[in-house]
């Protein structure tokens, strides 16, 4: 696996030096970052279609934002600045599972409950960050909060690949059942779909993807890439296969462009912000295309 990856990197670097690829790819870290984008982009796009269908956009955003608090807690507990994965994963998972557990038990609507939890989590994150500010240089945190391609290591890539596999396999296995459970839970149960268990599985999948994407996209913006490409795809698609295909494609384009463009143009923009800006532009273009092309509005012809 690592040998294959090394060979790939050397080849890409060779092509970049020969002028076949953008010159920034002559750097090892750039290839790493690009590879991370190629792995994580389509997975986020695929999971995003379920987020949109299940109307879990706000929930995914909240889990994404909880990553900030997770990062802060991790560093406070002495994990490495560049990747406090333990606390990150633990806190996000706890946040998501707790939210899901209380959703059926408080009688509050989901958005109210998420609003409460998100605020509490952000307050905790802000508190911990300010405690940290007295001890370390907070600028180090920028990488984790907004994403940085400089710090993506070979280990990170391997981790990403494993997470991508861990998320994609259950998603493909249960895709239809996730859908059915969101259309009509009663009917889903009659058809032997374990609706509640799937809700928890979904939380775990969102958490895994969030944690894995923190390196490239950053803790603040990772939730956005679960929503924006799928939202843009939903605007343009007329069938489920196009919806999923476009969402994965938009997500991939956003991660690749977001990583390459700042490097090529030597802009001091964090990769996370660049990725989300590209995704947002694709979304706006989709809205524009829909208003210009009546065929996309699902009009019966």
């Amino acid at each position: 696996m690592t040998e294959l990856f090394e060979a790939f990197r050397v080849t890409v670097q060779g092509w970049a030096e020969a002028g076949l690829l953008p010159s920034s790819l002559a750097y090892g870290f750039a290839v790493n970052a690009l590879l991370a984008g190629v792995i994580i982009g389509p997975v986020l796009g695929l999971l995003g279609t379920l987020v949109v269908v299940k109307r879990h956009a706000f929930f995914s955003e909240a889990v994404g934002h909880s990553a900030m608090t997770g990062v802060a807690i991790g560093i406070l507990l002495g994990e490495p600045y560049s990747g406090p994965y333990g606390a990150l994963f633990g806190y996000c998972l706890l946040f998501g599972l707790g939210l899901n557990y209380l959703r059926n038990r408080t009688g509050l609507s989901a958005d109210t409950l998420i609003g409460v939890f998100l605020s509490m989590s952000l307050a905790l994150g802000a508190a911990v960050l300010l405690v940290l500010a007295g001890r370390i240089n907070v600028h180090i945190l920028e990488n984790v909060l907004f994403g940085s391609i400089l710090t993506v290591s070979g280990v990170d890539i391997a981790l990403l690949a494993v997470v991508a596999l861990l998320v994609t396999v259950p998603m493909l296995l249960f895709y239809n059942r996730f859908m059915l459970a969101s259309f009509n839970p009663a009917l889903a149960q009659v058809r032997q779909v374990p609706v509640k268990a799937l809700d928890y599985l979904f939380v775990v999948l969102v958490t895994l993807v969030t944690v894995a994407s923190v390196k490239v996209i950053g803790a603040i913006l990772v939730g956005a890439l679960l929503v924006i490409p799928a939202a843009a795809a939903k605007i343009l698609a007329t069938s489920l296969s196009r919806f999923v295909g476009l969402s994965m494609l938009f997500s991939l384009i956003a991660t690749l462009c977001g990583i390459l463009i700042p490097m090529e143009m030597e802009l001091p923009i964090p990769s996370g912000a660049a990725i989300i800006l590209v995704a947002g532009s694709l979304f706006l273009l989709s809205v524009l295309a829909r208003s210009l092309l009546p065929g996309l509005r699902g009009a019966v012809t």
Partner: peptide, 9 residues
């Protein structure tokens, strides 16, 4: 999506 296991997309 109701009827099969193979992802409906």
């Amino acid at each position: 999506a109701m009827q099969t296991r193979r992802p409906a997309f």
